[in-house]
Design a protein around this nucleic acid. Structure first.
Lengths: 336, 336
DNA sequence: TTGCGAAATGACAACGTTGTCATTTCGTTA
DNA sequence: TAACGAAATGACAACGTTGTCATTTCGCAA
């Protein structure tokens, strides 16, 4: 069949071509069982011949919903891939598409601004991925008709939140050291403004204090290996340093390299734990024990939370996705 | 003002509240200069008071466009983050939002299937991110009214494509070795089904053949360091091996570690180049020379190509984004 | 054949915007 | 004050669907 040049083929065009009414075409699409097979075939042929594709706008207008969930990326980091992957898969499974906008580099975006922009787009609910503090976090109120879930370790007064249990993960790692007979744990942080880093530090501190141990001054890093290396050089000179918790694997590796260069062995002289369990990708036979967060699971939970809340946007919940300690051999057991 | 419980506030509600006509409200939104200031203020107050938000569906229906670009993720890998970042930023800049769907793990999705699903969603054009072969690649025809750009190293008969110049990058690295006096170059590949790996291998082969050098059997890797390490153990035993090109940095690191464990030094005994320039994040004082692709730029180009083609969806172009050789000290100059 | 209930189909309004064109209001000049 | 053109505003249709309710057609029993 020759290609039509008419801009858009509507249901009405199909109806005329098939010799049926508009409504019948609609039925073929939405409740095919309610139309006779012979009619259905006629309509299908007509759709095929004309190249009909349902108009999203008209459909959504009538239905009052879009079948899309908005995702606002305030920050797009490495771990975000798996999270987006989880969100997208869960969305797929529940028949939703994603509508995405992103904070531009350098631009300062508040939650209110993000919500305002999202609410002009085709979305039934939205997810904010927020890894740093924003000015209006505490005062923000989500649109009453748009379920909003924030991915962030902070608690929010009115919105549902979902987060990795970063603090718990750090505590777990710290306790792992202590349970293996270490008397103290040093900490190498990530970038100051990162909430992940802050939470990991908080968990580390809490775990030590819970055992009555005074946490030593944390060393400031920037997520990259070089900063870990610098920290490692400092730590190598501290006689009481038997255990180091680094806020990610790259810095942990930097620490380990510095220790090695200073003639110290991991784990015999110093034990190390990192975060994110990604060193094995880069280092053959990696020995680094690491706290791994299930980013994909995080995304899935966030999306499910939005979908579950579509009917009751003002509901509020808090979800923590626990981390997992991936044990390798970078921690020495000091007990007897 | 008490919050209204009416489900959706329409322009008409605002018009009544402000004591003006529906059309005037529309004008306040779309051409504010054409309405008297006093009227504008009245309307704005009414909008504020009622919590009005423009209805996306109705607006798109009338305008016949959505202001959204569809993105289909056939594959979501590490490098994809920067690409998405580029797409999102460019979209932002041009006033578009993104509509995203993803191939589910395990599911087999064709281009036709992706196009069919996308064309039911609010999109004016679309981008396919395709890093592996699909069955209907050559036969696929994009919807005539929906500009389609495919991010892939392969050429497509009818659609515009955008890609890193993987082949050129590999050639560049290879020539770099040869220009430094190396007589041959070994290659460690990534996963077999990866188009990136295939293209990098093709470029490596081409560069050698261009100088009349018979390419040695490539070593099969899987992107991770352990497979690079295994390859390195093999290469360490080859007396003629002075140069190794690994299809990514992680494997390159594996190769280097294996060489070191075999008593060989990089670069004094063997020179190595990797891809993606990401080793410095994980390894302090990394010496690895690496070919870096500008994924962000790639995303920007893809989006711009879609937007440029919105008016002429059947136009076709091919964009290659060149790579950059980031020189460190892992290549020895054998000349003189 | 007729009558009947159920199944299939159709006519029409409505969703909330924007475009077209008509009407009103305003500021200026005669 | 009257008259005029420009600026501001309004009435109404239209975009392409789906819901409601009315109508037609069908299969089957009397």
């Amino acid at each position: 069949m020759a290609t039509m040049d008419k801009k858009n083929v509507s249901m009405n065009d199909v109806a005329i071509a098939a010799g049926v009414s508009l409504k019948t075409v609609s039925r073929v699409i939405n409740e095919p069982d309610s139309v006779r097979e012979s009619t259905r075939d006629k309509v299908h042929s007509a759709m095929e011949a004309l190249g009909f594709r349902a108009n999203f706008a008209a459909r959504s207008l009538k239905l009052g919903r879009y079948g899309c969930i908005g995702v606002v990326l305030f920050h797009l980091s490495g771990g975000a891939v798996d999270m987006i992957d989880g969100i997208a898969d869960a969305a797929e499974e529940r028949g939703f598409a994603l509508t995405m906008i992103k904070k531009r580099a350098g631009e300062k975006m508040t939650l209110a601004e993000a919500a305002r922009r999202m609410s002009q787009l085709p979305v039934d609910g939205m997810i904010f991925n927020l890894r740093q503090m924003v000015d209006d976090f505490d005062t923000f109120e989500a649109p009453k008709d748009l379920k909003t879930v924030i991915i962030t370790p902070m608690e929010h007064p009115t919105c549902s939140t979902v987060s990795d249990d970063q603090e718990g993960g750090a505590r777990m790692a710290c306790e792992y050291f202590l349970n293996h007979g270490h008397k103290n744990v040093y900490f190498v942080s990530g970038k100051k403004e990162s909430l992940s880093s802050q939470c990991r530090m908080k968990g580390w501190r809490a775990a030590l204090e819970a055992r009555g141990i005074e946490p030593p001054e944390p060393l400031q890093g920037d997520w990259n290996a070089d900063s870990g290396y610098a920290a490692g050089l400092v730590l190598a000179d501290k006689p009481d340093c038997t255990a180091v918790l680094a806020a990610n694997d790259c810095m942990a590796n930097g620490v380990m390299m510095a220790l090695r260069d200073k003639g110290l062995n991991v784990p015999d002289d110093v034990s190390v734990i990192g975060f994110d369990d990604e060193l094995y990708k880069t280092i053959p036979n990696s020995i680094l024990t690491s706290v791994k967060f299930r980013h994909r699971e995080l995304g899935i939970r966030a999306l499910n939370e939005v979908v579950a809340g579509l009917e009751a946007p003002s509901s509020r919940s808090r979800t923590l996705v626990s981390g997992v300690l991936v044990e390798r051999s970078s921690v020495k057991d000091l007990r007897a």
